[in-house]
């Protein structure tokens, strides 16, 4: 494998009787995704029917295989072979930039003003800062279709809430540390809410189910309340939590 990776990497670590954790990197970096998605794609063809699941994340790919068809050592050999001639993908994810229409407003983004205060910016500057950057999807997890994206501008960095909210509304656009996300379903959540998107992030009837995939690029586009509603967004206000 290329010398662009640290010496001790990639590393294969046991993830149980039917799994291997392929550790490709130590640190979070947008450049990791080209390698991780390439590895995932090649594992799909190399394992064929014996593949059960692939879980890509920031620095790793977990490979789950059928333990009836393959022993752990056989699976390990397949992964090692794939790693030997791995090249990073040029076009990663779906290759498209998703634009998520977002209504930034205190009524649906109850932490907007507090984030402005915390970062020393005005609300308008926070919105410009958040919508002015194209983000990369690092991982999906926490809930179906929930995409961890980053990295946000360092000026936007702010901690999670001390006490998570019990119910975060669908479409809520949020930040925490140097990451951003949009909530696909109603779940508890401890991130800072800036606004709401009308985009349908998770749909069980849609081919592929999740709008966003690991490696995809995402931009949040600031829209008016009217445009947000026209696109099917729900403007029901949410009171700021305690």
């Amino acid at each position: 494998m290329s010398g662009s990776l640290a010496d001790a990497l990639p590393r294969l670590e046991s993830a149980g009787l039917d799994g291997w954790m392929v550790r490709l990197f130590e640190e979070i970096d947008e450049a990791n995704l080209a390698w991780i998605t390439a590895l995932a794609r090649h594992c799909e063809s190399a394992f064929g029917e014996a593949l059960v699941d692939l879980v890509p994340s920031y620095t790793t790919l977990m490979v789950i295989f059928d333990p009836v068809r393959l022993s752990p050592s056989e699976a390990r050999e397949i992964i090692a072979r794939v790693l030997t001639d791995l090249e990073p993908e040029e076009a990663i994810g779906t290759g498209q930039v998703h634009e998520l229409p977002t209504f930034y407003d205190p009524s649906v983004g109850p932490d907007l003003e507090r984030v402005a205060e915390h970062t020393g910016m005005t609300v308008e500057e926070v919105i410009d800062c958040h919508s002015g950057k194209t983000y990369r999807v690092f991982a999906l997890g926490f809930a179906p279709g929930f995409a961890f994206m980053g990295l946000t501008d360092p000026r936007l960095e702010c901690p999670r809430l001390d006490t998570p909210r019990q119910k975060v509304p669908v479409g809520s656009v949020a930040i925490a540390a140097r990451q951003t996300a949009a909530y696909p379903t109603v779940t508890p959540g401890g991130w800072n809410l800036l606004g709401r998107t009308s985009a349908r992030l998770f749909d069980r009837e849609r081919e592929g189910f999740s709008l966003l995939r690991v490696g995809d690029e995402v931009r949040f586009v600031s829209v008016s309340r009217e445009e947000f509603e026209r696109q099917g967004g729900d403007p029901t206000p949410m009171e700021a939590a305690g």
């Binding site: 954790m21 994340s57 977990m62 991982a139």
Partner: peptide, 26 residues
């Protein structure tokens, strides 16, 4: 850094008390 968790994974949060993860884990 967050990574995949398999069935039965035994994680140890900072309180030192292990949690064995089952079917509905994140």
């Amino acid at each position: 850094v967050s990574e995949g968790i398999n069935l039965g994974g035994v994680q140890v949060p900072p309180d030192g008390q292990p949690i064995a993860l089952l079917n509905d884990r994140q």
